[in-house]
C-alpha cells in the first residue's frame, strides 16, 4: 500500500493531525502501531507545565489569588494520578468488554485528547493579560467548547482502538466513570487504613515512652 501525507508524518507532529482528523488519525495509529510512549509522556508533561503556567500567569482579575497558592509538585502528582486513574479505569472495563485496545494505546489516545486543552490554555494565558472581567467571555466560552472537543477526541479514539460502535463507546465511557469512582473509593479506604495503622503505632510508641 502506498503511504503518503499524514501517514508518513513524524510522530511528534502526528497528534496535531489527529486533533483535526480524529477518525483517520486514530485508525491509522491503530493499524500501523503509531502510538508512541515518548509522545504520550511529552504531551502529559506539556499539559502539566501549561497547567502550572496557567495557574501562575493568568492575570489576577480572572484568577484570584491562585498564583500565590500554586504548588507545582502537587499539581504534577495530581494530574498524573488523574491521568492514570482514567486510563486504568477504561482499560479495566474495556478488556472485559472485548475491547481490542492495549493500555499504551489508551494512554496515547488520552494524551492526544489533551492537546486542544494545552493549546487553549496557552491562548488563555496570553489573552488574560489584555482582557478585563467583562470581556472574559471571549475566553471562557471557547474554553468550554475546547473541553467538549477533547472529550469527543477521547471518545472517537477509544471507539477506534477498541473497535467499538458508537453506542458501546458511550456505554464504556459511563462504565469508566463508575470505575474511577470505585478506584477513588478503594484508594480512600486504603489511605484511611494506613492512617489508622500509623496512629496506632504512634500511640503504642507513646505508651512505651511515657509509661
Amino acid at each position: 500500500m502506498k503511504r503518503s501525507g499524514f501517514q508518513t508524518m513524524s510522530p511528534y507532529v502526528y497528534p496535531f493531525y489527529t486533533m483535526l482528523h480524529p477518525k483517520d488519525g486514530f485508525q491509522e495509529m491503530k493499524m500501523n502501531h503509531k502510538d508512541s510512549v515518548p509522545v504520550t509522556i511529552l504531551l502529559v508533561a506539556a499539559y502539566i507545565v501549561v497547567d502550572i503556567l496557567y495557574r501562575i500567569f493568568v492575570d489576577f482579575d480572572l484568577n484570584g489569588y491562585n498564583a500565590e497558592k500554586v504548588s507545582a509538585p502537587r499539581v504534577a502528582v495530581t494530574l498524573v494520578a488523574v491521568f492514570f486513574i482514567v486510563t486504568a479505569a477504561n482499560w479495566c472495563f474495556c478488556t472485559l468488554l472485548d475491547g481490542k485496545g492495549k493500555f499504551r494505546e489508551i494512554c496515547y489516545v488520552a494524551a492526544c485528547a489533551i492537546l486542544p486543552m494545552i493549546l487553549m490554555n496557552l491562548i488563555v494565558i496570553i489573552l488574560s493579560r489584555f482582557l478585563t472581567i467583562d470581556e472574559s467571555v471571549i475566553i471562557t466560552y471557547p474554553a468550554i467548547v475546547v473541553k467538549c472537543w477533547s472529550l469527543l477526541l477521547f471518545a472517537v479514539g477509544l471507539s477506534e482502538i477498541h473497535d467499538y460502535s458508537g453506542k458501546k463507546t458511550v456505554f464504556s465511557l459511563i462504565l469508566t466513570v463508575v470505575g474511577i469512582v470505585a478506584i477513588l473509593f478503594l484508594g480512600m479506604i486504603t489511605v484511611m487504613l494506613f492512617r489508622q495503622l500509623y496512629y496506632f503505632i504512634v500511640s503504642v510508641i507513646f505508651e512505651i515512652k511515657y509509661s
Binding site: 500565590e68 497558592k69 504548588s71 509538585p73 502537587r74 504534577a76 502528582v77 495530581t78
Partner: peptide
C-alpha cells in the same frame, strides 16, 4: 521526594 513535596501546602 515529589510525593512528599506535594503534601506541602503553602497556605498554612
Amino acid at each position: 521526594c515529589v510525593i512528599l513535596a506535594s503534601l506541602w501546602n503553602p497556605a498554612v
